[in-house]
Design a binder for these strands. Structure first.
Lengths: 240, 240
DNA sequence: TTTCTTTATATTGTCGACAATATATACCAA
DNA sequence: TTGGTATATATTGTCGACAATATAAAGAAA
């Protein structure tokens, strides 16, 4: 089930969506998105082999565009390919997961810093709206659902795009965040820090609203660092 | 002319090079590297169209592997592709260049922080050697050559790999740094801050040797920020 | 039985040809 | 001449078939 946020088709070009003309959809691109979705949802389990003839039949396409799709999946690290052997859906080791958190800390910290100067007042207002909506959802469902779903990602997504830094946006939204979603499926762990995380979100928005980039970066980094430590703790408990 | 540093064939997998077995080279991969080299060197000028039939003839391969190569070039943003139209070698706008510097500031700052705890004493020693070698080169040639060549990149490269963070390494060394090299060709601007940059490098190594990650990150970020401001200044002067 | 070699099978990599789309040229009307 | 339409050309996207490589199965030697 495709969620309603903006992850679905990646990022458009540039800062403002220009007249959405002529982004013709090719078969390769289409099957790429389908497979990506299947991987992130877990329909194609992690570690499983990507058989070209099999998938070609499944999606009713030739091997040509399929291989191109696999190439793109490899580019965003969702599959790993060995020459003359084939491609497998990535499996994230604990170390790799932690690695990603460090990258996120650096990148999203910068995004928050830039967002503090680049986001329009209107965007900030909308972000506040989103957050308060999340707040009431959490009260209703005792915080279970929100972070399970894509709500948390939605918040981060807004700030990332708010940075208006094309490269930053592409890196985070087209690569890392799909891997994060895959990991959520693979590890299937629930966050125990929903209320704290929500509060941290609020502080971050405050800093951005105050146009305090330095503070926004600090808070975002701390926020992601806490997530990482939470994960590390869980991994430790799990391994004993 | 391929320089002798390790950029040539990207990054191996993992932290230590495992027995270099079975990384069979496919035609697509081979032509990918050739074209990438040509783009970075300027043999294929920025903005020019990538004609599939033409390049296929040039490199003596079929369009199949060539298209795969182009796909990989697109993945690291060296070419930009429009469906049903074709691919062009990327042209970096000033804004895009600045965008990259922000990403580098975040990522390499984190790399320096991690390197301070992850690099072995031996690695740090070697880094010091490299740096002092650079120092004497600068004295000899009055600082002209060093940063023109890949020496500067070499230094940064060491620290990035020193982070031992696979994801970080891939992002920086496989994507961003090729684009930096392309930009150096496209803009063709010489740095006026060679002596200062060299000193900054020394401070960074000191911080790493002291195992002071916090400081290393601060210094690296400051170092890259200065580069960015230098570029911004040049761009301003150039535009008037 | 185990281990190595050899054969058979399947999958990936590569190629050339065809279809679909976009660009360039020629033509006509105003 | 200018503008628009229609044709012609070239390029990209897609397909099916063949070659090269790896994996699985079968057989031989210890």
């Amino acid at each position: 089930m495709e969620s309603s946020n903006a992850f679905s088709n990646g990022i458009r070009r540039g800062h403002q969506n220009p007249p959405d003309t002529d982004d013709a959809i090719t078969i390769a691109e289409s099957v790429f998105r389908q497979i990506r979705q299947a991987i992130v949802e877990g329909s194609i389990p992690t570690g499983s082999k990507i058989s070209e003839p099999e998938l070609a039949k499944t999606y009713g396409v030739s091997r040509g565009p399929l291989r191109e799709a696999i190439g793109r999946l490899e580019a965003c690290s969702l599959v790993v390919r060995k020459p003359n052997v084939g491609a497998r859906v990535m499996t994230m080791s604990s170390e790799q997961l932690i690695d990603i958190y460090y990258v996120r800390e650096a990148l999203e910290g910068m995004a928050a810093r830039l967002a503090a100067t680049q986001m329009s007042d209107a965007e900030i207002d909308k972000l506040r709206e989103l957050l308060s909506m999340h707040g009431s959802e959490i009260e209703q469902e005792h915080g279970q659902a929100y972070f399970q779903k894509e709500g948390d990602l939605d918040f981060h997504y807004r700030i990332i795009t708010g940075s208006k830094n094309e490269r930053l946006i592409n890196l985070l939204c087209n690569d890392l965040y799909y891997q994060m979603r895959l990991y959520r499926y693979q590890f299937g762990m629930r966050s125990r820090r929903v209320p704290r995380a929500y509060n941290e979100h609020e502080y971050i928005v405050d800093a951005i609203a105050n146009r305090d980039g330095e503070m926004a970066e600090l808070l975002m980094r701390s926020h992601i660092r806490s997530s990482r430590k939470n994960i590390e703790q869980m991994l430790k408990e799990r391994s004993t």
